[in-house]
Every structure is written in C-alpha cells, then in structure tokens.
Design a protein around this nucleic acid. Structure first.
Length: 558
RNA sequence: CGGGGCGUAGCGCAGCCUGGUAGCGCACUCGCUUGGGGUGCGAGUGGUCGACAGUUCAAAUCUGUUCGCCCCGACCA
C-alpha cells in the first residue's frame, strides 16, 4: 500500500478530550475518529489492526473446534423475557419497537439467542459437544463510556458459547477456551494475567478474566507472585497485616466530637488498625452493621454478596435504629444483623461505645460481640495471600477477555434440552467466552509506546514494514523504493510505502507515530552507494545493508 | 444518576471579567525555496463563536434554558 493511497489523517497535536495514552495515540496516528460518546469510526489503519487480531482469533478458535457463525444484532424481546434478563438488565440494554409495536432490543451479548438456536437444533447427546462463536457488533448503552476505545457503546466482540452434556464436558470446553485465550493474547504480544472474577449478572459458579496491566485500566487485580493466586479485587481474598496485640482492660473513653476513626485515632494516639469501623447499611432485608478494621476499607461488592443490595444508612436512621448518633456506634450490645471482617476475630479493639461522645476500649471478638464472619475488606498491596502467606501486589488492568461457566442458567428457561444415552431429557450445560478485539489493540498500545508514538507488536501491526524513500525527487531513490516494494510484496509482506512528496522529517515523525515495527529508510546518499537502512521501531537501532540483502534480511528476522 | 470541567476554523488555543471590525499557531490551497527528524518566505481559503430565548442602540462577551463532550464517582453481559 502506498501512503498516498491510504487515508491516514495524522495529527500534530493531541485532541484535548483524550486522556488515555492509547486514545491519544489512536487519534493522533489516524487510527480512529470519535462520532459521539462511546461511538468510534475505525479508520483504514485501525481496521487493518482489528482484522489482524480477528484473524488470530479465528485461527485459535477454529483450532479448538469452535465453529464460526453469525447472529442477528436485533433481537425479539420474548427470548430475553424468558430468561428474565429483559427485566434485570435495565438501562444498559438498547430497546426499541418495530413497526408492529413489538418489543425488540439490540444485542449486548448472545447467550439467549445462541441457546434459542441450540434449543431447536440440538436433540441428542450425539450432537454434542458444540462450540459456536461469532465476531460481531455488540451494543450496550453504557452509563459512562470512557478512555477512547476502551469502553464504548458499540464494539466488536468475539463471543463463543459451549454446549455440553455434563459438567465434565463443560470443564473441558472451559479449559480449551482458557488455553486458546492464552495463545491468543500471547500471539497479540500482550502482557496479561488470568484472574478469578465475579460471574456477576452472567450467573454461573466460576468465571475468569484475562487482564492486561495498564494504567488506563478500570479494574484492579490482586496477585501473589509466590503461589500464583490472582483475582479481581472485587473478590480477592487477603489477610491484612496483623495489628499489634494490645492488652487493654475494657473501659469507656471520653472522645468529645471525635467521630471518624481518623479523628479518634489522632485524639487517643492509637493507630487506626486498633479500631473497629462500624458502618450501618440498609439492605433489602433490613439494617446491617458492617464491621471492618479501622485501617481497612469496606468492600461493598463483597458485602452485597452476603447481604444483597444495600445502601448506606442516613444519619437519622442510625440514630433511630441504634439509638446513638453516627460516629459513636459500635458492635457491642447490638441486636441488628452484624457482618464483620475476618481480620477482627483476633485482637483487642476500640470502637464506638453506643453512647454519644464515648468510645469503648478493650473490645474482643466473640467475648464482647458476635457477628457473621466474612472477608469484606478491600484487598490492598502488601496484604498477605490467603493461600501461601506471600505478599500480594495490586495492579490496574484492562479486561481483554473473560470466560464463564454458565451451567443451565440459560438452557433451562429456554428449554434447551437433549436426550442422553438413557433417553432422559436433560438441559444443556453451557459456558460463554468473550474477547474484545479493540481492547486488545488499545492494551497493546498502552503496553507498547514511547514519546514518539505507537510501537506495535509485529503480529497485529497494520503493516509489517514501512518503506521511507526520503527524497522523492531523487530518481535513484524512487527506483530502489519501487524495486524493494515489489520484491517485499511478492514475499507476502504487508508494506506501507511513504511515497508522499514530504520532507524526511515529516516521514520520520509519521512513521514513528503510526508505529509499524520495521522501517526501511532510503536516504539519497546511501542509495547512491547501493545501501539502505533497516530500523527497528522499538529500539531505534538501524543497520545499513545493501539493497540486494534487504529481502533476505527482513525475511530471516521476522 | 451525583459531582466537576469544557464548547470560538480540521487540531491546539487567545478574546469573555470591563458588550462595539472574530484573532493566533498548526493544518489546508497557490508560488518560490528546502531536501536525513514536523524547512523558510510570500499570498490565500476556511467561522450561524454548540443551540434557543432574553437584556441592550449593539452580545463570542451579560442573564436564563437546553444540547453535546471530557474527567471523578455510582453503574457495568
């Protein structure tokens, strides 16, 4: 491809409303343009990258026996009503009516439709297992699209679905996917982790996410380098550092106007890890007093898994339900439901005395109060691994893929049954598996860039090699450029040749910005001596080779 | 949905406080120049100042409403 024939609108300055590095570079280098919040136009260069990623996805999915097909984006409501998600999903689903006033929605995922198909077409255990996948547009009315292409309202997704006769079969399909995902992300040149994740609204028991470390990510994962434990902080278990043992006798302490752990801690000159933080929340089934150590943060998702949806109590509710104003509440003598973080089981603590302007010193779990014990704090870097005691690290990550064991959550309501060897009707055992190709591209940029621009991994770069004839007025330069272009294209390389009548500086700047991994630079003086430079985009190292050697050289190094 | 910020040429911005001819840099077009890291000079093109309403002799500027975009949070198959 000649630069003059492909639309690459590079920008000298970064558009002001881009924040994430990948977003800035994709805009500047002419890969994407924004249409509206969360809606992006993929320009020719960007489309090449996505196509390369999708080619890798197809190869690896086909390799595990998955079959590509294509599903509608527009769905009738009834199927979503049968699984209940028409009502549970809410505003994130785009809904509309067709001309006959029939309720429809735009597909945000395809469990329902895939299962609908399976329900009709799969009858016997002899038809199983099946893995079906598609690479197709998904639509989600995100509350807050952000970070360029990382969180959009319309995006391409590779989604696959497995149908098995048994949980053992599901285990196998799940394992095949996990392995394929590892190969895919490795081939795309990404650094990534597989972590335990929260199945969330997808249902099912087990789920994992594939996470690419990046400051632009929206998630955090806890990692143990010693035993390999890795989990989304939404559910990561951890042991906070032990608080020093105190031998306080039980006594009330006057703490006038000191309400927060920080205030009382400063007032009494006792570090926060010797306090119990008491937080009253209102769940659907009534008030709950959540207890965490003073130096820890309550993890709301963990708590809601135990008590269901909840909201923080208002000041007036605290007074009404516990008989004392917020700031002086504590676990002792309370009759409301109490859920406490496991770290509080050991040690002696200070907490509210349930008496205005007083705190109680010398509180011991089980002796002075009881509670349901759970891990409800947020895992932090420096906590210990619950498996091996190793130190946990916490990293910010981009979710690039996920895998779910669904079981029969969709097959039962949609009546996707098969007959087993004994003629018994049983529901299909399902799994679902997703990858976002645009997120792979964005993560690749996040992980591979420098001050000059993008540094694509070879496997997903829009072109393999860029040829830079520096002086388009030099006949010899053009002759050599054309010759190399022809020879390299014949070798099946994807070549971008900057044939524009631009100055050398402009070509260098654009080439570095666009980020094609190999540059072949044709300077007038070198060309006159039969030489060209082959330059590595990442290291910026260049070697001079004779024109005749170029093809051999790039073939052997790629 | 809650909080904050911003809408002036394709991009980056000034002008607004204190109302009176719409500006700068880059990009773009033409000419010359230059030719290994965004060359230099000259001449040009391009704007309903997000929209609507109000105040005023006069609104980019003041007031109100509204729309859009970004960030933080909530939410997130």
């Amino acid at each position: 491809m000649r630069f003059s024939k492909i639309f690459i609108p590079t920008l000298r300055e970064t558009p002001a409303d881009a924040e994430a590095v990948s977003h800035k570079l994709m805009l500047r280098a002419g890969y994407v343009r924004q249409l509206a919040a969360g809606l992006y136009i993929i320009l020719p260069l960007g489309w090449r990258v996505l196509n390369r990623i999708q080619a890798i996805l197809r190869e690896e999915m086909n390799a595990i026996g998955a079959q590509e097909l294509s599903m509608p984006v527009l769905h009738p409501a009834e199927i979503w009503q049968q699984t209940g998600r028409w009502d549970t999903i809410g505003d994130e689903m785009f809904r509309l009516k067709d001309r006959t006033d029939r309720d429809m929605c735009l597909g945000m995922t395809h469990e329902e439709i895939m299962t609908w198909l399976a329900a009709r077409e799969i009858r016997s255990y002899r038809d199983l297992p099946q893995i079906w996948y598609q690479i197709q547009t998904k639509l989600r009315d995100e509350a807050r699209p952000k970070s360029g292409i990382l969180r959009t309202r319309e995006f391409i997704m590779k989604d696959s679905y497995s149908f098995d006769t048994s949980t053992e079969g599901l285990e196998e399909s799940y394992r095949l996917h996990a392995e394929a995902y590892h190969r895919i992300f490795r081939r795309c040149g990404l650094t990534f982790y597989q972590v335990e994740s929260d199945p969330g609204m997808m249902g099912g028991a087990t789920a994992h996410e594939f996470m690419a470390p990046s400051a632009a990510g929206e998630d955090e994962v806890a990692l143990c380098r010693k035993c390999g434990y890795a989990a989304n902080v939404e559910l990561a278990l951890s042991l906070p550092p032990k608080a020093g043992e105190m031998d306080w006798p039980q006594e009330e302490v006057h703490t006038p106007e000191k309400r927060t752990v920080q205030e009382v801690s400063g007032f009494l000159k006792v570090s926060p890890d010797h306090f119990i933080k008491s937080i009253l929340v209102i769940s659907d089934r009534g008030p709950v007093l959540a207890l965490v150590r003073g130096d820890q943060e309550l993890h709301e998702k963990k708590l809601s898994k135990i008590i269901g949806d909840f909201r923080p109590a208002q000041k007036a509710e605290v007074k009404e339900l516990l008989g004392v104003e917020a700031g002086f509440i504590g676990p002792m003598g309370q009759s409301v439901r109490r859920v406490a973080d496991s770290a509080l089981r050991e040690g002696v603590y200070i907490s509210g005395a349930n008496k205005a302007h007083y705190h109680m010193k010398g509180i011991k779990a089980e002796r002075d109060f009881s509670a349901e014990w759970h891990d409800i704090h947020t895992a932090k870097a420096g906590d210990s691994c619950v498996n091996c005691g190793g130190a946990l690290a916490v990293e910010r990550v981009i979710e690039i893929g996920n895998i779910f064991k669904l079981g029969t959550k969709y097959s039962t309501p949609l009546k996707a049954f098969f007959l087993d060897e004994n003629g018994q009707e049983r529901p299909l055992i399902m799994g679902s598996y997703g990858i976002g190709p645009a997120r792979i591209a964005a993560a690749a940029i996040e992980q591979n860039n420098d001050k000059d621009g993008i540094v694509w991994p070879k496997s997903i770069a829009p072109f393999d090699i860029e040829i830079l004839p520096l002086n388009m007025k030099d006949a010899k330069t053009i002759e050599v450029a054309e010759r190399l272009y022809g020879e390299l294209v014949a070798q099946r390389f994807e070549i971008l040749m900057d044939d524009r009548d631009e100055r050398a500086g402009v070509k260098f700047k654009d080439a570095d910005l666009i980020g094609i991994p190999v540059q072949i630079i044709l300077g007038e003086k070198n060309v006159a001596e039969g030489l060209v430079e082959i330059k590595d985009r990442r290291t910026k190292e260049a070697v001079k080779v004779s024109v005749d050697e170029v093809v051999k050289r790039v073939t052997s190094s790629s």
